[in-house]
């Protein structure tokens, strides 16, 4: 066992400032611990993935225009759907969550076929029109899918990546925004909530 270092100073009588310094060291240590604990708690409670319903500055605002041609060559304008609830879905054929949600959307669309009922509109995100068309056809999707070659429609809606879905009220305002693959039950639930008017 080696003896402790016997250099001067380690065994001094505490100088008058020693007491104050001991307290200040404890204070600093306490502050660091509290801040560290707060940091750890906050980081622990943050979910690693974003929640499905995502805030957007468009909430309560007029939905930006969607006008152009669809993948089948027809022309489309969102304003013609004023007076109906509209679900706007940004998608791409290469995006796995889009492929995942597509059957649910097809079922939803089928269930809401009656005229005047909720309409479903797709917007192609960063994809060739031919690929999107093939995707729609192979999944049995029959709703209009608007082509967005220069990404301006996606920009107007603040879309970061597919799939993103917006619910637009009959008066043309955006009432909900979702990030990630939708499920049929999720859509029904959120539509019901929106239609009831609860925030």
């Amino acid at each position: 066992m080696t003896p402790p270092l016997s250099a001067s100073g380690l065994d001094l009588e505490p100088a008058p400032s020693g007491v104050r310094r001991r307290h200040s060291a404890r204070w600093v240590a306490g502050v660091v611990l509290v801040v560290g604990a707060a940091l750890v708690t906050l980081l622990a409670t943050r979910p690693p993935q974003a929640a499905t319903e995502v805030d957007t500055p468009l909430l309560g605002q007029r939905a930006p225009a969607i006008a152009g041609t669809t993948v089948t060559g027809a022309s489309f304008d969102l304003s013609t759907l004023r007076g109906r609830w509209v679900v706007v879905n940004f998608f791409a054929s290469w995006c796995p969550p889009c492929q995942q949600e597509q059957p649910d959307l097809v079922a939803f669309d089928y269930a809401h076929r009656t005229p005047g009922d909720t309409a479903l509109v797709g917007v192609v995100f960063d994809d060739a029109a031919s690929s999107a068309r093939a995707f729609m056809r192979s999944t049995g999707a029959a709703w209009p899918a608007v082509v967005d070659p220069d990404g301006q429609i996606a920009l107007q809606y603040g879309v970061r990546g597919p799939p993103e879905t917006f619910i637009v009220a009959p008066d043309g305002t955006v009432v909900a925004h979702f990030d990630g693959p939708m499920t049929g039950s999720g859509l029904d639930y959120w539509l019901a909530r929106a239609q009831r008017g609860t925030p």
């Binding site: 250099a7 100073g9 380690l10 505490p14 001991r22 060291a25 404890r26 240590a29 660091v32 611990l33």
Partner: peptide
């Protein structure tokens, strides 16, 4: 941090 706070008095320098 706890260890430093505990041994704080020994860490005073000459």
């Amino acid at each position: 941090v706890g260890l430093i706070a505990w041994r704080g008095d020994r860490l005073r320098s000459p």
